[in-house]
C-alpha cells in the first residue's frame, strides 16, 4: 500500500553501464518530489553499491522501494562474498587491482560512504554465496 518498487539488474564487469541504475533511481526520486538532500544521499549510496556489484561481485540486483515515510535499497549479489566484513567496512580498505585503481575506483571508501548516507545499514555476506546490503533512508516527517 502506498509503496512503489523497482529492480535493476547489475552485470559483473559492465563498466559501460555502471552508474545507470543510480541515475535512474535519482530521476525517479526527483519525479516523486523527494527532498533533494535525501536524493543526494540515496544517489551516492546507490552509486557506490552499484559500482561494487560491477567491480567486486559476480553480478546481482539492486532493488529500491519507496513509501511516503522511507526509502529502502537492497543490493543482493550471487557471490563471491566478502571474507572479512569488518575489515571491508574500514575506510581505505580495498582489494581492488591496480587496473581498477587506475580507473579511479578502489579508494576503499564505498562501503563507509554507504553507511554514512543511510539512516540504517546492514551487511550480510557468506563466502561462496553472496552479499546482501540493506539500507534505509527516512524521509522528513510530515512529508
Amino acid at each position: 500500500m502506498g509503496n512503489i518498487a523497482y529492480d535493476f539488474q547489475i552485470e559483473k564487469d559492465d563498466f559501460e553501464r555502471a552508474g545507470e541504475a543510480s541515475s535512474k533511481i535519482k530521476k525517479i526520486l526527483r519525479q516523486l518530489g523527494i527532498d533533494s538532500g535525501i536524493i543526494r544521499r540515496v544517489a551516492i549510496a546507490a552509486y557506490e553499491v552499484e559500482i561494487n556489484l560491477v567491480i567486486h561481485s559476480l553480478g546481482g540486483t539492486i532493488s529500491i522501494s519507496i513509501d511516503p515515510k522511507s526509502i529502502m535499497i537492497i543490493a543482493k549479489d550471487i557471490g563471491p562474498g566478502i571474507e572479512n566484513v569488518e575489515l571491508a567496512m574500514k575506510e581505505g580498505y580495498s582489494t581492488a587491482s591496480d587496473k581498477i585503481r587506475e580507473m579511479g575506483f578502489g579508494a576503499g571508501m564505498g562501503l563507509p560512504n554507504m553507511k554514512k548516507c543511510a539512516d540504517s545499514f546492514y551487511i550480510e555476506s557468506i563466502i561462496g554465496k553472496g552479499t546482501i546490503i540493506t539500507m534505509k533512508m527516512m524521509l522528513k516527517d510530515g512529508e
Binding site: G2, I4, R30, Q31, L32, G33, I66, P68, L139
Partner: peptide, 23 residues
C-alpha cells in the same frame, strides 16, 4: 532557485500513487 517542474505531484503520497499508475 531550483525548479521542480518534473515532479508528478506536490504531495508525496499522491506522487507515489501517480508513479504506480505510470508504471
Amino acid at each position: 532557485e531550483p525548479k521542480s517542474v518534473m515532479t508528478l505531484d506536490k504531495d508525496i503520497v499522491k506522487s507515489i500513487q501517480k508513479m504506480e499508475l505510470v508504471t
